[in-house]
Design a binder for these strands. Structure first.
Lengths: 210, 210
DNA sequence: GTCTATACGTGGATAGAC
DNA sequence: GTCTATCCACGTATAGAC
């Protein structure tokens, strides 16, 4: 997608600093001045490049990998063991501690206090992730399934990186994979309750598309 | 435990307002002035009663039900169907929308940006919840099990109340119970990976107590 | 117990020189 | 493109009158 307008010396530094800053402190906890300091540039530059704190947030939280590519790639391997592959991939991206590259953590953190970040996360999840899954997953109620998966992954992220709940926080990735894979697998391919009994008027999975 | 010192007219109003305020806006998003306004009192009163914003937070986030009582109560019903009972109980407390009484949501929200809140959540979870579970649950690796449960519950809370991810956000509680109960049940009573293969030196469940 | 006034810092954002 | 200076709003917290 070409190059974003104006990518000289410091723009990347700002973006990189903003990424880890939002990741650790959330939205309100992050300050323009603080990010500027971390990037080693003048605060005014952030406005010059991004206009506002909000816009810096959305710029910083662009994911390094596009689910548009990843989701089909994971599904291409077949439904068997997809839970395990998904987890292994994700934990690889997140890293063990605060290695850069976990803007999703930043998004989660920011979502907790900042409404726009929550909206961002919601729309991203609904459109990019759940949409893709719904397209490719040959199962009833794909949106519900994707949301269930998302909820468990968010919980894992919270426990491991935000709350730092032991033993999850410092557990070996393989242990986490082994623990969570069956859950993810069931959410994606297992039986779901409303297969049996019809649902109250919450219109779920009705209409089939999206 | 008796009565906290100085419980006149407005103290309860402040506490109640602070509860819902932290619940919705997290820690940094909540302001002394805002809480005071919501409670209909003067900002200075908050300092008079609680001393600081931090102390107000810990006062406001005292859970209405004590896990010390709830955990044994749930376990008393036997291991069969404990996942479902746990979920039903929890969703009942949380309510459908922003009915007061969900300080746990506030704690989660605040934890995302405020380190002390995260520490609070961690210690509360480790000591109060996981400790109780470990005592009463006759299963190997009780701490890991409790943490897994916690992670899924946090994820559910995030999806339903913070990110508002559909269809989870507006789903009928019974649907959620049906979806999540098997997961919780497996985390509590199902087989866990490290029953088979020994773990890397992350010392989990080794030593047995706390 | 309750409120007014205020100190003091810090945050986001802008104007304009270089 | 980069930096200095600055505006202005709002945050926590305190002192002290009533």
């Amino acid at each position: 997608m070409g190059r974003t307008p104006g990518s000289p010396a410091n723009r990347e530094a700002i973006l990189s600093a903003a990424k880890t800053y939002f990741e650790r402190h959330g939205y309100e906890g992050s300050t323009i001045r603080g990010i500027a300091d971390a990037a080693g540039v003048d605060p005014a530059l952030l406005y010059h490049y991004f206009g506002s704190k909000d816009q810096l947030l959305v710029a910083a939280l662009q994911l390094p990998v596009n689910p548009r590519d990843v989701v089909p790639e994971l599904l291409a391997g077949g439904l068997d063991g997809i839970g395990e592959r998904l987890l292994r991939r994700l934990l690889g991206v997140w890293g063990r501690d605060w290695a850069a590259g976990g803007p999703m953590i930043g998004l989660i953190r920011a979502s907790a206090t900042h409404d726009e970040a929550a909206r961002l996360a919601r729309e991203f999840f609904s459109r990019e992730v759940m949409g893709r899954v719904a397209e490719s997953l040959d199962m009833p109620q794909p949106r519900l399934r994707a949301a269930l998966v998302g909820s468990q992954l968010m919980g894992l992220a919270m426990a491991r990186f935000v709350i730092k709940l032991e033993p999850i926080a410092s557990a070996d990735p393989e242990l986490l994979i082994a623990c969570y894979a069956p859950t993810i697998q069931r959410y994606l391919t297992g039986p779901l309750p409303s297969d049996d009994r019809p649902l109250p008027p919450t219109r779920i999975g009705k209409g089939g598309h999206q």
